[in-house]
Design a protein around this nucleic acid. Structure first.
Lengths: 203, 203
DNA sequence: CAATAGAGTTTATTTTAGTAAACTTGTGAA
DNA sequence: TTCACAAGTTTACTAAAATAAACTCTATTG
């Protein structure tokens, strides 16, 4: 049994806040062992006492930030790594084909979206083909805006690309634009037939 | 003057370890003010004493990890955000148009790349059009592989998409594939004329 | 222009983290 | 075996963080 209440008490006595969401100790130990280091070696590298390292690894203390900093320096990793790493990247060795016209349809009043490779969930990019039904800026109630960056390529027809901080610009087949999606943006067809575009969003 | 030596001493007396690389306090205060909260409100949300919050914001203490956890929960953010965020997103309100055929050319033996929107440097995605000159798998010395995820759309012609863990697959105009780019991948033209594809990479 | 209250800081104290040193456990050489 | 010692844990203590309460500073209102 642990001789001190420390962490257990800290979280248990505070019901409306979640329990340690990541096992810092386990993680640190993992990294240390991967590199084949002893506590003594890490101690020398980080300047943290051997005993302290032991306690951290066994979750007997909640290390101060200063200590975490040293730890990061000594283990040669950046901070996010320490925490993020746990979640494996979901794409590992994966591939997902979407045949022409067989994406997941998402129609709206102004755009007719076809979501590509919808079977993979947590990916970095979301690609979709869109048929632009809208002909007028006024068909939109307000600017479209969302997190992330967006790439647009005109596949067929021609469009006008409106954006919050720039003049409207005409884009024809093969033209592309890359922009900050938090800036308001709207696309309308200019050609007789509805234009088709490819959109790729990344957060 | 600060009544306790705490942080200053901790770092200064330990020459071979860097000084607090991120201004945690400044950052926390920033977030709090953005949300228009008082210390008291954050205190209620996080269960951390008002006085402690004040000290953290003024870098008078190096908060323990347990406290940082609570803070994150209460401010409604995930851990990496706390640290990473500092680096401004370079795209803020920006837009970059590339006209058809006017991208930055990058020819190789097997692929003829045309880098789109090359004027923006640190963006999340790198889009480029590629004319696939290669006709045979054997023209490549080894698998192409790199960090990140990749989206491929066939713009014209048809290709065969080879990948390390899957059978080769034929892709025709309009077909697309989304895959883990760390998995070896190679594309060759199948149609009489060289196929043209769009590639978008995200790290 | 006091009086009151809200927001933040500092003080004094308690609690917890951090450390050196003692202890335990496991392992390999003599 | 037993000795030596390397790796890790626990103990006893010191240093620092966390807290409640007192205090300062501004702004507002009767």
């Amino acid at each position: 049994m642990v001789s001190r209440p420390s962490l257990e008490t800290a979280t248990a006595s505070d019901p409306d806040h979640f329990v340690e969401p990541l096992e810092l100790g386990k993680r640190v130990k993992e990294i240390r062992l991967t590199k084949g280091w002893t506590l003594e070696e890490v101690s020398k590298r980080t300047g943290i006492a051997r005993s302290t390292l032991s306690k951290i690894e066994n979750d007997q203390v909640s290390p101060s930030f200063a200590i975490v900093q040293k730890l990061i320096g000594g283990l040669g990793m950046d901070l996010p790594q320490l925490f993020v790493e746990a979640q494996e990247h979901s794409m590992a060795g994966r591939r997902d084909i979407t045949r022409s016209g067989e994406g997941e349809p998402h129609p709206t009043a102004t755009y007719e979206h076809e979501l590509l490779s919808y079977s993979i969930s947590r990916k970095k990019m979301v690609p979709f083909k869109t048929i632009v039904r809208a002909r007028n800026f006024s068909e939109f109630k307000e600017w479209v805006r969302h997190d992330g960056e967006e790439f647009l390529l005109v596949l067929s027809g021609s469009v006008v690309f409106y954006s919050e901080f720039y003049e409207p610009v005409e884009l024809n087949e093969g033209d592309s634009v890359y922009y900050d999606a938090t800036m308001g943006h709207i696309v309308v067809s200019l050609s007789p037939e509805d234009a088709q575009i490819l959109w790729v969003v990344a957060r």
